[in-house]
């Protein structure tokens, strides 16, 4: 049986292995600091499609194909896939699943989708449901912009604390065998500290990351220093600083081992202000940079804490604040010592 530790954390008995990843990104991401780790990019972010929503689906498709090729699997080898995206009704995920004919569990966790699907998949697999499972998510700048904000050609200034939705999709395949394993998972509580400014995602999401991280540290009796890397999803620079401050108040110090996928995705010349955002951020950084480090045993113990702002433009216009959630996935290279 999987064991529940403390309030929110579960320790997995049969620990699924990350057997392969794939990611495909847009041009701006490829020219960023993480550029050399990505599997592929396209300078045409429509990928030959006539709408950005259809293009996002193509990004998903390419990420899956890369991951399948790397793991030498066929779509029929996959038991089911868990994934989502930030467009309404998870259109990109649903249509991708239609094209691949892989059974689908669609989940909505906004930008937290990567850690949410990894946590769900590993929990299910540990309980015996599925042997090979694919986790998938991504986002597209232009598609997100037209759904959540303004038309692309609309002239307005971006706030200094705003972030840039990453274009790209990441895909992680879980199975068995050697490799980095998912050992513990923790699902977060929906947290809302009253932020209603949809440009300030970092400030809205930081409390959610704080909530689940604090619970995880208490449950597992660990401190941030026990991990080689703690990676949040898309808090951006401002959000990361806020998270540091919030955890510091409770005596948890996030040091050099802390990174934010969104913040590390772009450099300062790319004018993204606080860095990247969107479900694609944690997906592409985890499936490229972080997985490579795990595979090469440069890091052996890490936490992925993707955060998601579960906002709806309708409710926001009705004056509601932004509820946010974050989920923790602990990934380890298990050596001789068992159960970490």
């Amino acid at each position: 049986m999987n064991r529940k530790i403390g309030d929110q954390t579960f320790e997995l008995v049969s620990k699924p292995t990350i057997i392969g990843t794939g990611c495909f990104v847009g041009e701006k991401e490829a020219y960023g600091p993480m550029g050399k780790y990505f599997d592929g990019y396209s300078s045409d972010d429509t990928l030959g499609q006539d709408s950005f929503e259809k293009a996002e689906r193509k990004f998903f498709e390419r990420a899956i194909n890369i991951a399948l090729r790397k793991t030498r699997l066929k779509p029929t080898d996959i038991d089911y896939m868990i994934g989502g995206d930030i467009l309404n009704q998870l259109v990109s995920t649903n249509y991708t699943a239609r094209d691949f004919q892989i059974p689908l569990i669609g989940v909505y966790g906004a930008c937290s989708t990567m850690s949410e699907s990894l946590a769900l998949a590993s929990g299910l697999m540990s309980g015996g449901v599925g042997k090979t499972v694919l986790c998938l998510t991504g986002s597209h700048f232009s598609a997100a912009e037209r759904q959540y904000r303004n038309p692309l050609e609309f002239g307005n200034q971006r706030q200094t604390y705003s972030q840039w939705t990453a274009t790209g999709a990441g895909c992680v395949i879980l199975g068995s065998g050697d490799g980095p394993k998912i050992t513990k998972i923790a699902f977060g509580k929906v947290t809302d500290y009253g932020v209603s400014d949809i440009a300030n995602m970092g400030a809205a999401m930081a409390p959610a990351a704080y909530q689940v991280l604090k619970a995880f540290f208490i449950d597992t009796k660990t401190i941030p220093r026990d991990y080689d890397i703690i990676a949040t999803g898309d808090l951006g620079k401002l959000g990361s600083d806020i998270l540091r401050d919030l955890l510091m108040k409770d005596g948890y110090y996030l040091g050099q081992n802390y990174m934010d996928c969104g913040h590390s995705l772009f450099n300062s010349e790319q004018k993204t202000f606080q860095g990247g955002s969107g479900a694609g951020c944690s997906a592409i950084v985890f499936s490229s940079y972080l997985f490579e480090k795990l595979k090469n045993k440069e890091i052996n113990k890490m936490l992925l804490v993707a955060t998601g702002a579960l906002m709806s433009t309708t409710l926001n216009q009705q004056g509601e604040t932004i509820p946010c959630v974050a989920h923790v996935v602990e990934i380890m290279n298990l050596k001789e010592k068992v159960n970490g």
Binding site: T160, Y193, G194, V195, D245, F273
Partner: peptide
């Protein structure tokens, strides 16, 4: 109260144009 304090803190932490 927590939210009010937090929003005040965010306001002062956010970079200004």
């Amino acid at each position: 109260k927590r939210n009010q304090n937090y929003l005040k803190y965010v306001e002062q932490k956010s970079p200004k144009a």
